[in-house]
């Protein structure tokens, strides 16, 4: 999902740790206790979570770019206000998540610098362009819909600060999905041209959205440990199937077709069975060769660099005030 690169990066390094403590830790997890920042935890648990939560945070921040692209061109003031609020929410989600990652001992600046240096990943989905207004509808409906599917189980993740951040995020995310679907309903009920635009956007986003859930279960390296630690409660394929089952009827309601001619409903299980996913495309996008990878990184670096004077000025002002009040007290 937003941390899908976890599935592809190097294998965990194994630390030799106090076996008794590790067993005690696992017993707490098995008893559904929440692990809190100052509690003892295995180094690998800390490392996995720092990486997962910070990647999730980076995804929220980079995720502002494809939608921010349409704020000035939204078709009405109502749509513009909603989109602006949604993009602001994404920023807020990024900040809750960075704060959760920091409780594990990494500094915010260190995490942001890793992302700007291209050493930390963010979700592959944000490397696709938003070409028309219909894309904003599809992003809300499907990208946020997929994110909700993934984030709801994370509300019960074993790490307290991450779980609490996810509860806040999920509460806000439901507005995002509904505003996206409303855009789709409007287009689907509109002129032939509008309907075609909605279908064309769905055609472009469908497969990349399915890839958001990460590699198929048999290819995912990190799942076992993450499952044992109750960071992950459902497998990639389970969540993907849940998402497809929830989404297909919504597409039918819109009168749109899923761009998968081989898709059919299994009469026994009721599940919508989809065709093979092009995992080469996924690997290419993660490796930096998606349609917008370079644009996204350039935009983030530009924003960071152009904000440097604001950070410096705020720090200088705080320092000046501190010295003044110290002088007054003396």
């Amino acid at each position: 999902m937003y941390t899908q690169a976890l599935n592809t990066t190097e294998a965990e390094d194994r630390h030799v740790e106090d076996a008794a403590r590790a067993a005690q830790f696992q017993a707490r997890i098995d008893a559904e206790e929440r692990i809190e920042p100052n509690d003892w935890m295995p180094a690998a648990y800390r490392k996995t979570l720092t990486r997962q939560i910070s990647q999730h945070a980076h995804s929220e921040i980079v995720g502002m770019l494809p939608e921010g692209n349409w704020i000035t061109r939204a078709p009405s003031l109502r749509r513009k206000a909603a989109l602006l609020a949604k993009v602001q929410d994404e920023c807020g989600h990024g900040l809750y998540l960075y704060a959760a990652a920091e409780t594990l001992g990494a500094s915010r600046e260190e995490l942001v610098d890793l992302m700007l240096a291209g050493k930390a990943k963010y979700s592959s989905i944000f490397n696709y362009p938003t070409l028309t207004w219909a894309d904003i509808g599809v992003v809300g409906w499907l990208v946020d819909g997929a994110a909700i599917m993934n984030q709801i189980p994370l509300c019960r993740c074993s790490y307290g600060p991450y779980a609490r951040a996810m509860i806040r995020v999920c509460k806000e995310e439901s507005f995002h999905q509904r505003q996206g679907y409303e855009i789709m309903v409007t287009l689907a009920r509109g002129s032939g041209e509008q309907k075609a635009m909605a279908q064309e956007a769905l055609d472009r986003w469908w497969w990349p959205v399915l890839m958001m859930f990460g590699p198929p279960d048999q290819a995912s390296q990190h799942s076992d440990t993450s499952t044992r630690w109750k960071i992950k409660r459902f497998s990639n394929d389970e969540l993907r199937q849940k998402f497809v089952d929830a989404t297909v009827p919504q597409a039918h309601y819109l009168g749109l077709s899923i761009p998968d001619p081989g898709m059919k409903q299994n009469e026994t299980t009721g599940h919508w069975e989809y065709s093979a996913i092009d995992w080469d495309e996924f690997k290419q996008v993660l490796a930096g060769n998606g349609p917008c990878n370079r644009d996204r990184m350039a935009a983030r670096r530009k924003a960071h660099d152009e904000g440097a004077w604001v950070r410096e000025a705020a720090a200088a002002y705080a320092e000046k005030r501190k010295q003044r009040s110290a002088a007054k007290a003396a």
């Binding site: 900040l95 806040r168 806000e172 705020a314 002002y317």
Partner: peptide, 22 residues
């Protein structure tokens, strides 16, 4: 939750934006 800010005034303003949007 928590946030980063250079001083108390900025911290209050950021808290308003991050934690009380609804």
């Amino acid at each position: 939750g928590s946030l980063h800010a250079a001083d108390a005034t900025l911290a209050l303003q950021a808290a308003r934006d991050i934690y009380t949007r609804r």
